[in-house]
Design a protein around this nucleic acid. Structure first.
Lengths: 395, 395
DNA sequence: TTGAAAGCGCTAACAT
DNA sequence: ATGTTAGCGCTTTCAA
């Protein structure tokens, strides 16, 4: 035994048949020349069977808990399997069972928002619990790439696919996915009866506005985007509903739209939009913003008008982009979208379809998932409201 | 033919044997009741063989370009395969060839930085070019979870694994990975001869500092972190080298450390650190910051001292966190880390090892990859420097 | 140039 | 309770 990894045959296999059966009984020293090129040949079920002196069937049964195996045989098989660090070859298993144990995760975008990560994380943790693995592909919003990626997933016999978008939207499900159990995330296709999960946009706005109302605000602006999306519509509707439910009349002048493209410039445009809004004499005590970037713009606009947040103006955003929300001073109170939860839900829905092929998880229509508010320091009672809700209306 | 998907047998298969051979010859109408439960049975190689009137061997050869097939036979097979939308079952192929075509991608973290996304994107695009797929798992920095995930990857017979960290660091490669070709990203293990790729930290600092020197700055501060990491050391060394190379003496008083934990609070702590530094009378005309969050803190500190960026103080960051760099006013000039490129490199290195098992890609020691500067508006010539480098030294 | 057949490692139907 | 065996869909000898 010279350099390199230290291997030893343990007692029971000392006279053993197969070169492949190699057991570490000594403490492994640090291996400075690890495997290159090819993966080391791993022990297979027949290696275990031989070493344990049983048939492969028994090993299979013992490992999977399927058939009937006596407790002692089972224990022995398990012990030997552990010693040989045997784990079933999922490729062979997949071929035989016609189940790969892989869920494809198709995302339109993975690098420019933190949403993708949370979605993947949620999906992955649910998948792990069920002994499945995720195969993540990402199209960068290129339909051709997406097609190729989906074909690759299908060729790899994924059991199901999660089709996720980063922004809540209506879509047309790629035809390729009609042949396989698919669940939509942050998206829905009215023409296809596939389970779908989306954020409950109205609830987001209601939660935010109710938080403000509870603190005594009666003059609450909504800074939103011009683009007509489910998110924009839903949050606007939720805003209206919460305002009205509190017995406050809707003041259309308090609803401001910033025509903004997605992405960075949002902040500047929001600042301009909101500043010109204040310029025209509007004096809300609070703003509910469509997203955190818009909220960041409001911080800048407030500075221009010498308005202190939260003393003179309370602000609530949506998205919980930590890079923004934590770094703003004061910290931004915002609504966190349920990406992690939607990821989990999607995998659960997919496996449910796999187990009972007649099952259709969720509601008819997209399942709407609740968000939660992350409170930081950008909300306070309006001056004059003091310790009760419904204080003196400002202006 | 009633509702549902419209299918038709094309002429040549009208009398055909197999129910499975189903060809769309009519335009497909929109399917509102897609597959649930199980994936639709896909045509296999023998379906193609029968339809084309050849053996499966010939189909295999024709599809893969391996053996000798006459041009016409080949054309026919390909046509039939396309009509049956046949694609080889990668599971069966993997079992036979002992090559899964899957690369495992192990990441310590996927949700809280944009880095993971860019790494995955780079790796994925390189993998796609080689007909491989990525299986992404993520441990959330939990060693136990990591172990399980790696075991799952091995059970799925991944051909190689990419082991990626989000922050450049020295690590000890998990023992499980010694048995399979592995490439490290943003990390290195001196005890293991595995290919590794990391950012060239010194070059990052040199590029930033040289940009400032070119604009005429002679008094350049470096705001860095206290934590002793390869990134901190490398960038500090690069800073010193660039300064000295320009014939400017190192002024140790210009090197400021903010003891900061990763994450959000960085900004505030950086502001305090840099403010107290200015308070003591230090008057650099530019700061090179260890990262963008620190740079954001400098913006805040500058505001406290009535210093205008870039007129009174130029600022350069590292990371190109677009949420920060784009939203700061003025936009932050910063160095973008080569995450995408490292992802690509890793996959290329892994496939190289797979092809020639004696190959050891890259340099001895981690391969260092160049970054690039993203210029925005936070750098200008110092007052008095005017149009030439080496203008009047300030103070 | 084409085809027959073995076999990758496993699971499950069917003995015993 | 345990074992024998066929076969998942493909690739690859080897033979014709």
């Amino acid at each position: 035994m010279g350099d390199g990894p230290i291997h030893a045959f343990s007692g029971i296999y000392a006279t053993s048949q197969l070169g492949r059966i190699v057991v570490d009984t000594l403490t492994r020293v640090r291996d400075t020349t690890p495997a290159r090129g090819r993966a080391a040949k791993r022990n297979g079920i027949s290696d275990v069977a031989k070493a344990a002196g049983v048939s492969v069937t028994t090993v299979s049964h013992a490992m999977s808990g399927q058939g009937q195996v006596s407790a002692e045989t089972r224990a022995k098989v398990l012990r030997v399997a552990a010693e040989l660090s045997y784990a079933p070859n999922r490729i062979a298993s997949a071929l035989r069972r016609q189940r790969s144990g892989i869920i494809g995760f198709v995302s339109d975008e993975i690098a420019t928002t933190p949403f993708a990560g949370r979605l993947v994380l949620g999906a992955q943790s649910a998948a792990a619990q069920r002994g499945m693995l995720l195969m993540v592909v990402n199209s960068n919003r290129d339909v051709l790439v997406e097609r190729d990626q989906i074909e690759a997933l299908l060729a790899h016999q994924v059991d199901a696919v999660i089709y996720a978008k980063m922004y809540h939207q209506q879509i047309e499900l790629p035809a390729l996915l009609h042949q396989i159990p698919t669940v939509l995330v942050n998206a829905f296709d009215p023409a296809v009866a596939a389970p779908a999960v989306v954020p409950d946009e109205e609830a987001i706005a209601e939660a935010a506005v109710e938080l403000l109302i509870r603190d005594g605000h009666r003059s609450i602006a909504h800074l939103t985007v011009a683009e007509d999306t489910p998110a924009m519509r839903g949050r606007l509707a939720g805003y209206r509903r919460a305002i009205q439910r509190a017995g406050i009349g809707i003041d259309e002048r308090l609803i401001v739209r910033a025509s903004v493209e997605r992405g960075a410039a949002a902040t500047g445009i929001a600042r301009v939009a909101f500043a010109s809004f204040l310029e025209r004499g509007a004096r809300p005590t609070a703003v509910f913003c469509f997203n955190d970037q818009l909220a960041m713009g409001v911080y800048q606009a407030a500075a221009l008008f010498d308005l202190r947040i939260p003393r003179d103006l309370s602000v609530v955003g949506v998205d919980n982009l930590e890079l923004i929300a934590d770094n703003l001073a004061p910290g931004l109170t915002t609504v966190a979208l349920p990406h992690y939860e939607m990821g989990r839900w999607a995998v659960d829905a997919a496996t449910m379809m796999l187990e009972r092929s007649d099952a259709m998880p969720g509601e008819p229509g997209p399942t709407r998932m609740a968000s939660h508010i992350i409170e930081r320091e950008s909300v306070a009672q309006p001056v004059g409201a003091m310790h009760r809700a419904g204080g003196a209306p400002p202006i």
